[in-house]
Write a protein that binds this DNA or RNA. Structure first.
Length: 770
RNA sequence: UGGGGCGUCGUCUAAUGGUAGGACAGCGGACUUUGGAUCCGCCGGUCGUGGUUCGAGUCCACGCGCCCCAGCCA
């Protein structure tokens, strides 16, 4: 069995983040030596882009650490789960490239063991059967601001609990008659701890266990214990489970080393911030609505954020993985810019997609001075891609060009077809448009033009050629359907709307009948192309066939021209919500008369406003300061007590004696110790214990305050970083901090930073000595 | 209004108390037989107010804002 090891930054698939920091520490400390994670979907729907990100975190991290990532179906609710979803999940996760080896598990496979664990809890008085009806349970649970009330059944005897639970398993009770609950704390401010339900009765067949069970474990019970059973070490999940962690830890602790569970490794849950995507919804409920209303053709409609939809659209897993990488991991819930996904898709396709030509909205162009067919060689890739390969493209008298590439009255900066102007036909000749034929409605029906002699492969002298456009030969081109796929919603945050369907984008699918150059007939069906100037396309895997070509647009090309023209429109749709108007800040809580008096007294003793306030407000701080007053005047002690010791005093975890702190402060005043080192020592003692003064004495007198010595130090610093010194002299004054920091590092915190700062400043402000 | 979590460029994400950096987007330029790609440059941020400190995104206090929790869902 390979052991996990900390990867080099350069070999990480998942960029460093707060989770990998925890793992690094766990590995270094030897707490775990093999990292095991799991991706635990419930098979109750199709995987979507959110699953791609979650699985990237779970499996990507495990991979980086040479650990394992289990695929586990969290299938504890028979009412919602189906085999077809299991199949979809397996298929999509494989597609993404995850490899779980033989570690493919089902929570439903653990039902028997889970049951034994529940019995163990009952036997130890840690769980009980509650026979309150559902409404009563809800009522007794209380509300977030009102504590719950214990159920009258809470103190049933172990024997009765055992009997009842066995009967529940034996299907002797109707649904809702009883539940099994953990006996934790009905008054806990954490709602999840108010005797969470462990098992409920469900007379329903499970898609895997059939009718074997009529009690089913709840998530809060099954999930942590499934992790434990599998030897999962780091159970990564999203932020909405933060409060469930208390239950998770409770169960792990209670069951450690029992009913076949090892003492170690114990799993621990770590939560990351959720990610959503602009212009997208992913909740199953909402996705179903789109399907049911016929707004999309199904779960794999190329517009859907499902992995099957993305795949059918033509997106490759590589793009999704890179997208997830770039999104990153943090504790904060975030909404990701759709442009990032599009960038990842283009970046993936750009080097692999052969360029061919297709016209989605054909406009005939007749070339009066050209006859016959000329086969022109056109490379598949532009020079910057550096890939070989080419095909022959037929050129003839009758062509189709893109309707949007011609304008009767072009705007400024137009680089396309225009009457009287010369434009390059990509890979072919320069043409000059002579006139446009209009129909009765004034629409352009046909273009008449001529090719410029000698313009093949070179620009004709004395003729300004504006741009290069794509085209196909009318008699050779293949008719094809183009599905121009776009974002499903018109607004970036449809989830925030009362009715998300009102933001449905009717132009999310625009179908065009056009033509594609004949060369594609010879290509594999799954070839992803760049149709030049149109975007990346491939054949719809479902609807396309040799007799009826259908191309999905995977993503548009980045189009700075179109963007400029749509600027106004875009500004409208992307309008940011104005930041909430600043409320006037509330006054801090009033002090009681006694507290106010204490504060007054402190102020008279010379304490700062804020220190005085806190001394008055916090009894712990006040008491400590009073004890210190025998050793040190309060005005000197207060900042240390309030700012440095404050957090520990408030939590009642302070390990430092008043006289020790007083002595330490004195040492700082006498410059035997820098304040920086003093703070570090305090933190060290608070975390790990130890004798503060002994530690301080060991370093006493080490402060470097001698001017000559500091000058030497400063000079060496400047010499080591001449370019920084230069930058400072050019005005980047922030670099003083950099130099002091370097100096502190070099002297292990022993230099007097204030004095060093002075010396450095003097040195930097004066011109360097000759 | 109980408890918990979280606030860094427009977006995402970095920075043992020591130069606020990167990516995407945007803007400008170079190049271009794709208004693509590439290259170069620019723009732009620590939620607020105080405090501690030689030095604060980071520590402290008080505010403000967003998210989660009252399923026998996960």
């Amino acid at each position: 069995m390979p052991r996990s090891r900390i990867p080099k930054d350069s070999e990480r698939l998942v960029p460093k983040n707060f989770i990998t920091e925890i793992i690094d520490e766990d590995l270094r400390s030897g707490k775990y030596d093999l990292i095991v994670t799991r991706f635990p979907p419930e098979p109750n729907g199709y995987p979507h882009i959110g699953h791609a990100i979650a699985s990237f975190i779970d499996c990507g991290i495990a991979k980086d650490y040479q650990g394992r990532c289990h695929l586990r179906m969290d299938d504890t609710n028979p009412l919602t789960e189906e085999q077809r979803y299991v199949d979809a999940i397996v298929r999509d996760m494989k597609w993404l490239g995850w490899d779980w080896g033989e570690h493919f598990y089902f929570a439903s496979d653990y039902f028997e063991r889970l049951y034994e664990m529940a019995v163990d809890l009952i036997q130890r008085g840690l769980a009980y059967v509650d026979s309150l009806p559902e409404e009563k349970i809800r009522e007794y649970r209380g509300t977030p601001d009102k504590p719950g009330t214990p159920s009258p059944y809470r103190n049933r005897s172990v024997e009765e609990n055992l009997r009842l639970f066995e009967e529940m398993r034996a299907c002797k009770h109707p649904e809702g008659a009883h539940v099994l609950r953990a006996k934790i704390d009905m008054a806990s401010p954490n709602m999840k701890l108010r005797d969470p339900i462990l098992y409920r009765i469900l007379h329903a067949a499970h898609y895997r266990t059939g009718k074997r069970w009529c009690i089913y474990p709840m998530y809060d019970f099954a999930h942590p214990l499934s992790d434990y059973i599998e030897g999962v070490t780091h159970s990564l999940c999203s932020s909405e489970f933060i409060e469930n962690r208390a239950v998770y830890d409770w169960l792990v602790e209670k069951l450690a080393g029992r009913v076949g569970l090892p003492e170690w490794p114990r799993p621990k849950q770590i939560e990351f911030g959720r990610r959503s995507l602009e212009y997208t919804v992913v909740s199953k409920r909402k996705l179903i609505k789109l399907v049911e209303r016929g707004l999309v053709s199904g779960w794999d409609d190329p517009r859907m954020p499902t992995l099957s939809g993305l795949r059918r659209r033509g997106v490759r897993p590589e793009a999704l993985i890179e997208f997830a990488r770039r999104v990153g991991i943090s504790r904060t819930d975030r909404t990701v810019d759709l442009a990032l996904l599009e960038w990842a898709i283009r970046d993936d396709l750009n080097p692999i997609a052969p360029r061919v030509m297709a016209v989605a909205e054909p406009l005939p162009l007749e070339l009066t001075n050209f006859e016959g067919t000329e086969w022109l060689e056109a490379p598949y890739f532009p020079p910057d891609i550096g890939k070989p390969g080419s095909r022959e493209v037929p050129f003839s008298k009758h062509l189709y060009v893109e309707r949007s590439d011609f304008s009767l009255n072009p705007p400024k900066g137009w680089k396309r077809l225009e009457v009287g102007k010369a434009t390059r036909l990509r890979h072919a000749y320069v043409v000059v448009i002579e006139r446009a034929e209009l129909d009765e409605k004034g629409e352009v029906k046909k273009l008449i033009g001529r090719v410029v002699e000698g313009s093949l492969g070179k620009n004709p002298e004395g003729l300004r050629v504006q741009g290069a456009i794509h085209w196909v030969s009318a008699e050779h081109a293949l008719p094809a359907e183009f599905r121009l796929v776009d974002r499903l919603f018109k607004v970036p945050h449809p989830d925030e709307l009362e009715d998300f369907l009102s933001a449905y984008n009717p132009e999310s699918l625009v179908v065009r009948q056009g033509y594609v150059e004949p060369s594609v007939k010879a290509d594999p069906k799954d070839t992803r192309y760049q149709f030049e100037r149109l975007g990346y396309f491939w054949q719809d895997p479902v609807d396309s066939g040799p007799d009826h070509l259908v191309f999905n647009r995977i993503v548009t090309l980045k189009d700075t021209w179109a963007r400029r023209r749509e600027e106004a429109l875009k500004a409208e749709s992307q309008k940011k919500k104005p930041k909430a108007a600043k409320k006037p800040a509330k006054k801090p809580p009033e002090l009681t008369p006694e507290e106010a008096e204490v504060k007054e007294r402190c102020l008279r003793l010379g304490l700062g406003e804020q220190e005085a306030y806190l001394v008055a407000k916090e009894p712990g701080i006040r008491a400590f300061l009073e004890e210190m007053s025998a050793h040190l005047p309060p005005d000197a002690a207060a900042p240390w007590v309030v700012h440095v010791l404050g957090p520990w005093l408030r939590r009642g975890e302070n390990k430092i004696l008043p006289e020790a702190l007083a002595e330490l402060i004195r040492m700082v005043e006498e410059k035997k110790l820098t304040s920086r080192r003093a703070k570090e020592l305090i933190e060290e003692v608070q975390e790990k214990g130890g004798d503060l003064l002994a530690l301080a004495d060991a370093e006493a007198g080490a402060v470097i305050a001698d001017e000559a010595e500091l000058l030497r130090l400063a000079e060496s610093l400047l010499a080591e970083h001449p370019e920084k010194a230069e930058a400072y002299r050019k005005g980047k004054k922030g670099l003083l901090g950099f130099f002091i920091g370097q100096g502190m590092k070099k002297t292990q915190g022993k230099a007097d930073p204030k004095a060093l700062g002075e010396v450095l400043r003097k040195l930097l402000e004066e011109p360097p000595s000759p």
